[in-house]
C-alpha cells in the first residue's frame, strides 16, 4: 500500500518551525495529469522495446507494478535528526 501521510517536522533553535501532516493522496492526484500526459510516450517506448528486443521488451511492463511496490515499501520509513538547537523528523506512513 502506498504511503498516505507524510509527516515533516522542522524546528529551529528558537523553537519555531513547522509540523506538517501531508496527505499524499493529494500529491498523487496532482501527479495524475502528468502521468496521463506521459502515457502515450510510455506506450511508444514500450512498443519500441518490444520491436527491438522481442519478448524481452515486454518485461518493461512489469516495471510499473515493481515501481509501485517500491513506493509502497517506503511506508514506515522514519528519519529523525535532533540536536540541541534543531530537530528534523520525516515519517512516511
Amino acid at each position: 500500500m502506498l504511503p498516505v501521510i507524510m509527516r515533516l517536522k522542522v524546528k529551529n533553535e528558537e523553537g519555531r518551525g513547522v509540523n506538517l501532516y501531508i496527505p499524499l493522496v493529494l500529491v498523487y492526484l496532482l501527479l495524475l495529469p502528468f502521468v496521463l500526459i506521459v502515457l502515450p510516450l510510455g506506450w511508444w517506448w514500450y512498443n519500441r522495446a518490444v520491436e527491438k528486443e522481442g519478448s524481452a521488451g515486454k518485461t518493461s511492463l512489469k516495471l510499473i507494478p515493481a515501481v509501485l511496490t517500491l513506493l509502497g515499501s517506503l511506508s514506515g520509513t522514519e528519519i529523525e535528526i535532533k540536536d540541541k538547537k534543531s530537530e528534523v523528523i520525516l515519517k512516511l506512513i
Binding site: 515499501s73 520509513t77 528519519i79
Partner: peptide, 8 residues
Amino acid sequence: ENVNIKVP
C-alpha cells in the same frame, strides 16, 4: 544530539 533511522 541523536539520529534515528528506520528503514522498512
